[in-house]
Design a protein around this nucleic acid. Structure first.
Length: 292
DNA sequence: ACCGTGGCCTGACAGC
DNA sequence: TGCTGTCAGGCCACGG
């Protein structure tokens, strides 16, 4: 979290506000927020001055700002929001946010682009473009699988790859090299819709059930995007700082003890991978051969 | 090659 | 009140 719908909301906002604008100054206020840049944050800033953002791409939870021409060997500013990252568009002179990490000022002296991140799990990077699934993406994104909203996404291929795994179904859903964009919230929601327990082994999952699960994941993320994403608090916002409304539509995530919307059984919460899994004990019974 | 775990981070909150 | 412990969890490095 933020997961695919929230990142797509941000991508659209960034594109609307910065496409065609030329960078005048970059201020890095926290070194950890600039990643994979051996020459350091000062060099990162210097390399961007005078360059023009031409578009904003996304794959899974990564997004990137294209710089000038999109050509092999070109580069882009890659961003990952991590747990608490925000990209905000703010008029110059707006007081700095408490966790402002990187500021972009533009030659037109219009609104700034600000990377704000409380926990610094996210970050920015200047990355070279390389080919992946037939398109150019920043090199650190090359190994990330296509997401369900990508035009090249092929659910049959994901089903086949998923059934070759020897692990639990939720662990597989969260593996960004299998299918990208799904995090803890939408994994739990998709599993509930498909009536599957999170520890169900991938290896014995029928092809149709795997297909239904991926369809459910696509549906729930598409619906969430239509609501502007999911927000529990002020951390998950669009570029104008506004929250989405999909949290009202969640069926299991964060609903421990509340009645299942299908059968009324109280939603249970299990510890899993140092986090929580929410599910309905009646609709999603624990399998005998559970894979933890 | 595949699979699973630990570390990175800070703020909100519960309990004493 | 102020302290401590727990939780939130995506990604990557690393070990088996």
């Amino acid at each position: 979290m933020p997961e695919l719908p929230e990142v797509e909301v941000v991508r659209r906002g960034v594109h609307q506000h910065v496409a065609g604008r030329t960078v005048a100054e970059v201020e890095v206020l926290h070194p950890r927020s600039v990643r994979r840049h051996l020459a350091g944050s000062v060099d990162f800033a210097a390399q961007l001055v005078g360059r023009t953002f031409t578009g904003v791409g996304r794959r899974g939870k990564y997004l990137w700002l294209d710089l000038d021409e999109v050509v092999p060997g070109g580069d882009a500013v890659l961003a990952h929001l991590g747990m608490s990252g925000q990209i905000l568009v703010q008029p110059p002179g707006t007081p700095d946010e408490k966790h402002l990490r990187v500021r972009f000022r533009f030659a037109d002296e219009g609104p700034e682009l600000r990377f704000v991140d409380q926990r610094t799990f996210g970050g920015l990077a200047l990355a070279e473009l390389t080919g992946s699934f037939g398109v150019l993406v920043p090199e650190p994104v090359a190994h990330i699988a296509l997401d369900p909203l990508d035009s090249g996404y092929d659910p049959d291929r994901v089903v086949a790859a998923l059934r070759r795994r020897r692990t639990g179904i939720k662990r597989a859903l969260l593996d960004q090299t299998l299918v990208s964009g799904i995090g803890n919230i939408y994994a739990d929601e998709a599993l509930w819709r498909a009536r599957l327990h999170w520890a169900r082994p991938t290896a014995t999952l029928p092809r149709a059930a795997a297909g239904d699960l991926l369809s459910a994941a696509t549906e729930v993320m598409t619906e969430a995007l239509g609501e502007g994403g999911t927000s529990f608090d002020a951390l998950y916002v669009n570029v104008n700082g506004e929250s989405g409304y999909f949290d009202r539509s969640l069926n299991v995530y964060g609903k421990e003890g509340q009645p299942c919307q299908r059968c009324g059984a109280p939603i249970r919460r299990d510890a899993f991978m140092n986090r929580s899994s929410f599910s309905c004990p009646a609709c999603q019974p624990r399998p005998r051969n559970a894979h933890f």
